[in-house]
Design a protein around this nucleic acid. Structure first.
Lengths: 187, 187
DNA sequence: ATAGTTGATTGGTCAGACCACTTAGTGGAG
DNA sequence: CTCCACTAAGTGGTCTGACCAATCAACTAT
């Protein structure tokens, strides 16, 4: 009945608990593999399986000779891997786009945004050196930052990374229109 | 200069290539770990590190005594793992509630929902044996199911679970109002 | 004081052993 | 001949221990 978890999965949970309860923050060094294997009473190979898995997720980073470090989820290695498997699945693709759009729609629904953010966005749109994708990324990054909700931002960025491997098209006037919307009330 | 990839990462790419080029489809059985280690000229432990990583992503499934199988990626397994780290990292109650609300708002914005779903929701609201929290849960579960986006549903559920221990208050008439909104156009 | 050496620590990889589970074959009882 | 029980092989699960490679810190000789 009860699911017999594999050791590496148990270690995985232990590591999560460890990070949470001991208050590790990005950049911190985790205990060594050997230390963890003693601490969790598991073989080092099992600990490594768990570490490799969350390394692929981008949660930790390991440097030979130094150690294992908690990482700021900037780049999600997993995204590339996942994308390569899922690219065919149109349903997943649509769900992903819808989810991302939901978040974007939310930050766009803010009544107002700070002046300096507005200026940044304008500069962005006029910047000819940027590709469409880069504009989209920086544009909404700015909006999310203005919004202030880190969680939403992270969720969006995750999906953004994901879609980087898929084609994504927006209308050329898309950003200008948004900016206009925010400018009007202030003039 | 060139990045010295770890063995498990190389194996990972080999496995991707293998799956792609040999046309594996969900449900198919992959070569055994021992076979792969010979094929890729790597230790079995290295092969396992790669397999464990993509298992956590939900790409494959392993069954002891049987083998390793390619899996249907509809379950968004990776979302759970990532969420468990992301949520606990930036778990400001307010951010969480806002994010959750964004998703709920989205399913509420559907123009219409199926009749049978509507009936279910009505029955729910009238059910006196349910607590507020249970009502909220089942109510939106129904709406998300009607919406059909499994990714959104999963994200919502994760946040829902995470907030299980936090107080959450809604007005008593909250659900009735929503149902009314959807009923009107049909009468 | 500084530069170089060296040893301890840490991750990276490998080999091999043994266990747990599943499956297919094999042989005997009916 | 049929059917069931047992066996053997194959597979993932886990552990141990060894050695390599890179880093870091302490120590030493200049």
């Amino acid at each position: 009945m009860s699911e017999r978890k594999k050791v590496y999965q148990l270690v995985l949970m232990e590591i999560q608990r460890l990070i949470k309860e001991d208050g590790y923050v990005p950049g911190d060094k985790l205990p060594s593999e050997r230390q963890l294997s003693i601490q969790f009473d598991a073989a080092r190979s099992s600990v490594r399986e768990a570490l490799r898995a969350i390394e692929l997720l981008g949660i930790i980073e390991t440097r030979q000779g130094e150690g294992t470090f908690l990482r700021n989820y900037q780049t999600y290695h997993a995204v590339e891997v996942l994308a390569s498997f899922v690219l065919q699945d149109s349903r997943t693709k649509n769900e992903l786009q819808e989810a991302q759009k939901v978040l974007e729609q939310h930050v766009l629904s803010e009544e107002s945004i700070p002046d300096h953010t507005l200026k940044q966005l304008e500069a962005l749109v006029d910047d000819l050196s940027l590709t469409k994708e880069e504009k989209h990324h920086y544009f909404f990054s700015g909006l999310f930052e203005a919004n202030g909700n880190q969680l939403l931002f992270k969720m969006w960025r995750l999906m953004q990374d994901f879609q980087a491997n898929m084609e994504l098209k927006v209308s050329p006037d898309y950003y200008e229109d948004i900016i206009e919307k925010y400018k009007k009330p202030q003039e």
